[in-house]
């Protein structure tokens, strides 16, 4: 599936295979992971909550918009949810195109749109307690 939310870790090669074609000379892969520090807080893990049906339809829309907006061949957008310790994969975006420039641009645009629109929320579990991340705000959980 080119667009999905999952609790399983990503098979990056499988994602690339999904959009491989002989005319593609460029595959740009963005892989997001859980980082150990955020704004000075030491993070143990993130708990991702998702509105599954809406997240998938919003990701599908973003993919279709990217295919219209950029001269690319195809794109994969996967997002994880559940309990994810530091170092775990969180988001994967892969874009294929003839040349690298449009693939880099489309990949960056897709990641920005996912962060802006897709109904997924993270709660940080830190040494100082738990915090909901709401856009740019941090609210004690």
């Amino acid at each position: 599936m080119k667009v999905m939310v999952t609790q399983e870790s990503f098979d990056v090669n499988r994602a690339i295979e999904l959009i491989s074609n002989p005319e593609s000379g460029a595959y740009v892969v963005f892989l997001g992971k859980v980082r150990a520090h955020n704004r000075g807080r030491k993070v143990e893990r993130l708990i991702y909550e998702v509105y599954g049906e809406m997240a998938v339809s919003e990701m599908a829309k973003i993919r279709e918009e990217a295919l219209r907006k950029f001269p690319i061949f195809d794109a994969v957008i996967w997002h994880r949810y559940g309990d994810l310790p530091v170092g775990e994969d969180t988001i994967l975006v892969v874009v294929s195109s003839a040349h690298r420039k449009e693939a880099f641009e489309a990949c960056s645009w897709i990641v920005d749109e996912v962060k802006r629109r897709v109904p997924v929320w993270k709660k940080e579990v830190t040494e100082e307690g738990e915090f909901w991340i709401e856009g740019d705000r941090v609210v004690r959980g």
Partner: peptide, 30 residues
């Protein structure tokens, strides 16, 4: 944020019987 049947919606839109409305904070995926 408010969605109606899985789509973002404006506050002046009228609802219908059977609708699923979701209320949620700004998103933070990625």
């Amino acid at each position: 944020n408010v969605s109606r049947n899985g789509r973002y919606v404006k506050f002046d839109e009228a609802l219908q019987d059977g609708d699923v409305v979701a209320i949620f904070p700004p998103v933070s995926g990625g």
